[in-house]
């Protein structure tokens, strides 16, 4: 029983990481239909900004989070303005273009910052563990779970409670008609892309105390994040959250019953089956096109 509870917490922790990486992806993919293969590199850049802030300014990652969001959002904005917005009518080409951007970003970091793994400290505030009964929970992981939920809530509020969100949803539903009503779809797209990238950057910074900060760190993360977005149903925030929780807990459960390698295989098989019977994911969008 204790083992099960501990493992349930581990699953929740994995889910929070999937959620925070997947959320930015879900927004970009869901609203713009752009499969952003450079998302992992935005995550990686976020981690490197966190490292730079710590090394050169002595900031802990918690203090630098707002700045990281802004910096990576700006990088995302540049990418959207420079490359992606020219390709909206050619969705397949965006895959190739963003993949290329990802490789370029990775190699730039490798060349100018160096290929070696970098160290970012865990904020001292969040060290240690919280023990309830026999369940041992790392404080930092608890923080990531809470933070991921907060980001989900903030994104939901942004989409449904602000004027920007209204515009974005209008553009998603019908770009041409929204433009007739005076919404500048281009601007909305650029902002959305920047917001998604910014979230990726924050995710990267939050991950630094748990994983190794290297130029290729994003590659592994982005694959899982894609799975989550697709299972959740494209464009559905709540779908992404539910899918993240499901994948996280399923991974934890299968890992406990078998081992990490077989557990992962089992999860991927389950996902294939799910997609076979629900090709639009758990929460498909029902919008007339």
């Amino acid at each position: 029983m204790d083992a099960l509870l501990n493992q349930a917490f581990a699953g929740l922790s994995m889910a929070s990481i999937l959620l925070i990486v997947g959320l930015g992806l879900a927004i970009i993919y869901g609203s713009m239909g752009v499969i952003n293969l450079a998302h992992g590199e935005f995550v990686m850049l976020g981690a490197y900004v966190a490292w730079a802030m710590q090394t050169f300014l002595g900031f802990s990652i918690l203090t630098s989070l707002p700045l990281i969001f802004v910096v990576i959002a700006f990088v995302g904005w540049l990418v959207e303005r420079g490359v992606v917005h020219r390709l909206y009518r050619r969705p397949l080409d965006t895959i190739l273009a963003t993949w290329g951007i990802g490789i370029v970003l990775q190699q730039l970091v490798r060349m100018f910052i160096g290929p070696e793994s970098r160290f970012v400290a865990t904020p001292s505030l969040l060290e240690g563990n919280t023990v309830i009964g026999a369940v041992v929970m790392s404080n930092y992981r608890l923080f990531v779970i809470v933070f991921a939920l907060a980001v989900l809530a903030a994104t939901w509020a942004l989409m449904t409670r602000t004027e920007f969100g209204t515009r974005l949803r209008a553009v998603i539903q019908n770009r041409e008609i929204s433009e007739c009503y005076g919404i500048r779809a281009e601007k909305v797209y650029a902002m959305t892309f920047a917001y998604g990238a910014g979230l990726a950057g924050v995710a990267g910074a939050l991950l630094t105390p748990l994983v190794s900060t290297t130029p290729s760190m994003g590659t592994y993360l982005v694959v899982d994040a894609f799975l989550v977005v697709i299972i959740g149903g494209v464009g559905s925030l709540i779908g992404t959250a539910v899918a993240a929780a499901a994948v996280g807990e399923a991974t934890a459960l299968f890992s406990m019953l078998m081992n990490d390698t077989l557990g992962r295989i089992a999860v991927l098989l389950a996902i294939i089956l799910l997609i076979r019977f629900r090709p639009n994911g758990l929460f498909p969008q029902t919008i007339r096109r």
Binding site: G11, V211, Y220, M256
Partner: peptide, 20 residues
């Protein structure tokens, strides 16, 4: 005895097993 895929980065399950 346990083997994880190359590049594996979340060891929560492994750590729980070590704890047990």
């Amino acid at each position: 005895e346990e083997y994880v895929p190359l590049g594996h980065s979340d060891f929560s399950s492994v750590i729980n097993r070590i704890r047990t």
